[in-house]
Design a protein around this nucleic acid. Structure first.
Lengths: 137, 137
DNA sequence: GTTAATGCAAACCTTTTGCAAAACA
DNA sequence: TGTTTTGCAAAAGGTTTGCATTAAC
């Protein structure tokens, strides 16, 4: 937990560990991933606490939430980026393109009646693994 | 139901009504929206049937599924497009930009190990309604 | 000391599943 | 007729909530 980010909230062990976990794991962890990870340090933490904190921290703007196939995933990454999403297995990977961000935001500026804060492009397709699997059959 | 689209499947009343409903309602209906809509014509349809068909039709490629705030929404719109999503109320609106699609697909072609089929950019922000609401307080 | 957060269990909501009956091709 | 689909109810996730206890400030 960096001292620079003193948001208006109580810094409980649970909250700090959840934030730290997400900052150390970039792979879009699910709630269960966070729960399992944090439980290694705080063995008595409850899943409800994880849920409550993930929601709280998302509302505070400290986390981003994405939903793939009905499951919430979280990230503490503040650099805007895009996603590669596999239509087969739901696998999700970050993908960076400064150009595309710039381009999207330029288009966003021209939209009326909607104040755009951020953009994110999802690239849907088939990942290497699933493609190889399919070719075998 | 257009006769041009004879996919390899049985055309039950339920299935046809679900497809027709989605073709007539462009506002990203939820499962419940579809259920309520279709039930006006087929009063005895079950929600399980709606679920099964939405999944089936999505796998057949006749529908697109998007997930906002943990709830699935469906569309029968085959023209690729983008979305304006309100961070406050979850409201979702279509947004078209041929330029952005072209640009994204051009970038997609350069991605290794992932076969990109389509792209979709989400513009996150605050809709007019929510903005006015917030300004009042 | 006051306020906010935790942990537990129960509740909730969305989605899936199993299976006998019915509908389609 | 053979196969797929339906409808019902039950189950299975994922997520939220209520409330007494505990921790933070």
């Amino acid at each position: 937990m960096k001292p620079t980010e003193k948001a208006d909230m109580k810094y409980t062990n649970q909250r700090v560990e959840i934030l730290d976990f997400l900052r150390e794991h970039e792979g879009h962890p699910t709630v269960d991933d966070v729960y399992d990870g944090v439980r290694k340090k705080l063995t008595r933490i409850s899943k409800a606490t994880v849920y409550k904190n993930l929601k709280f921290l998302t509302e505070k703007g400290l986390l981003e939430e994405v939903n793939v196939k009905g499951v919430s995933r979280f990230e503490a990454n503040f650099i805007p980026h895009h996603h590669l999403i596999c239509r087969e297995c739901g696998m999700m990977e970050d993908f960076n393109s400064e150009q595309l961000l710039d381009y999207s935001m330029k288009i966003a500026e021209e939209i009326d009646g909607f104040t755009i804060v951020s953009t994110s492009t999802n690239f849907y397709g088939i990942c290497k693994k699933c493609k190889e699997c399919k070719e075998k059959t």
